[in-house]
């Protein structure tokens, strides 16, 4: 009884968030996509502010859900590796470093269909495709719900 409305809530939140996440900005916000040195990460500042603001507003649509929003991209040189390029209020479960793309996220990158990764009885990651003005998938929006705390260093 409880699950369906909640999932619907998250999908609606994602729909609103995606309206404000400009895929063209997402595409180029990280300037050194090929760097493996985490100290080398550089961003286009203005694009970052726009996107971070959209993530934060998305997180706040329903404060009761305590959502963490994260934007993911695949590395151009290895599509098995995913990079959290902008974090909202916390890290995703995988942390802040480059990580192996999980099957659910991979499916979203490949098909554009949203997907849910269940992490525990209460916690799940909801993935949605982010598209640019050419309608190409350029990132995945993760909305993490039900973790119960905010992961940080």
């Amino acid at each position: 009884m409880n699950k369906a409305p909640r999932v619907l809530d998250i999908d609606n939140i994602a729909r609103i968030g995606l309206m404000y996440l400009d895929g063209d900005l997402v595409e180029n916000v990280m300037l050194d996509k090929l760097s493996l040195d985490y100290d080398d990460v550089t961003y286009n500042h203005e694009q970052f502010y726009e996107l971070k603001s959209a993530l934060t507003k998305t997180e706040r649509i329903n404060p009761d859900l305590d959502i963490t929003a994260v934007l993911w991209q695949l590395r151009p040189d290895n599509d098995q590796l995913a990079v959290p390029i902008i974090c909202g209020n916390a890290f995703p479960e995988e942390g802040w470093e480059i990580t192996l793309v999980n099957p659910e996220m991979d499916r979203v990158f490949k098909t554009g269909e949203s997907c849910v990764k269940k992490r525990s009885d209460t916690c799940s990651s909801h993935y949605y495709a982010v598209r640019n003005s050419d309608n190409a998938i350029v990132a995945v929006l993760e909305l993490l719900v039900g973790r119960g705390y905010r992961k940080d260093i």
Binding site: Y38, D39, V41, T42, Y43, N44, H45, F48, Y49, K52, P84, I85, I86, C87, F91, W96, I153
Partner: peptide, 8 residues
């Protein structure tokens, strides 16, 4: 910025 919260 390596923690992806801010661009600087």
């Amino acid at each position: 910025k390596r923690y992806r919260y801010f661009p600087f």
